[in-house]
Simulated assay, not measured.
Amino acid sequence: MLKHFLFLVLVNTVHCQENVLDVAKKFGANKLVEFLQDVELSSVLKGKGPFTIFAPTDKGFNDLPGADLEKLTKDKALLKQVLSFHAASGLKMSNDLKNDEVLPSLDDPEQIRINIYDQAVYATGCKVILPDKTASNGVVHMLNKVIYPVPTDNVVTFASTTPELSTLVYAVIRGNLQKTLAEGPFTVFAPNNAAFQKLPPGKLSDLLSNETALVDLLTYHVVPGTFYSGGLSDGMEVPTVQKSDVRISINGGVVKVNDATVSEADISVTNGVIHVIDTVLTPAS
């Protein structure tokens, strides 16, 4: 009994001497620690803290598209911004985190959005696969992938700089919804230009000349709260700002919203998330 007690004391003493970088490396975040050293952030995270680190595994970095990883390794300023977005000041255990709360990152004012789906924790859309790994100066939550790119635009600003969403942006302006969509948090199912081209002849021009009908249609594409892919499930019905529900179906990895297919998922923005869809959603009314 005494030997067992002394063993536990020894283990806890060693564990308490490990800072967040030691713990992150211990659980498979070698690349993260290496990159932190490259941009001279490691000295900060070895400090008193406390810090909450969302640490991508080495696989998370390896799973980035080759061009993105190469861009990060060549651009130290961008790499530092991305890495800073994975760390927050203060101690946040998984039980302390709340759905749709935002934590100021080390690169404040950029913020890490927390979501809780079926008790699983997500940080800006990335799943926490090993939570609550404590260190002498904070806690590490291991992520399945890298939070990249870092969201710096809200829904409207992002859409305004994305050519394939230009028709949607024009419709939002005609519906005077810019200020509304700058609030949130929202999940936006964003029809691309090709989706609007599939509408019956004259339908789009009719909508653009009828603000009430246009707002009704556009708000049917907006869901209060943030639903990344990890928060969507087959058969799920989600209430929209328009007050009617949209139905989610998932089959073979293909996600559909009513009859529309998600062509690009999980685009993080500062006030939520965007999923690009290939068909305009039409409310039943």
Rank of each mutant, 00 (worst) to 15 (best):
V273E: 05
R247V: 15
V139S: 05
G184H: 02
D278M: 02
T124H: 08
V82I: 12
V257Q: 00
T279N: 05
H4C: 09
I267A: 04
E110V: 05
G90E: 14
T187F: 05
I114D: 05
Q242T: 03
I248Y: 06
S249M: 13
L8K: 01
Q81I: 00
I248E: 07
T240V: 06
S229L: 14
L207F: 09
Y148G: 02
S285H: 13
A159W: 03
D38A: 15
V276P: 04
D58Q: 08
T226G: 03
E110I: 02
A135Y: 07
E264R: 13
T282G: 10
F5W: 00
S166F: 04
K198D: 14
T167Y: 06
Q37E: 15
E211C: 00
I112F: 11
M236R: 09
D153M: 11
P131D: 14
L2R: 12
I116N: 08
H86P: 11
G272P: 02
P200E: 08
S209P: 01
S233A: 14
S233P: 01
Q178A: 14
T226F: 06
V39M: 10
F85E: 13
D100Y: 03
E264Q: 13
L10D: 11
K127N: 09
V128D: 10
P109E: 07
L168G: 05
K198Y: 07
N99F: 07
V273T: 02
N115R: 05
D75W: 07
G272F: 01
D206Y: 00
T52N: 05
A159D: 11
D278S: 04
D216Y: 04
A77C: 00
S94G: 05
S94H: 01
I173E: 15
T134Q: 14
I250W: 09
L79W: 02
A284F: 06
H86V: 09
V155C: 02
Q37L: 15
D38E: 15
F7L: 13
G252M: 11
A24Y: 03
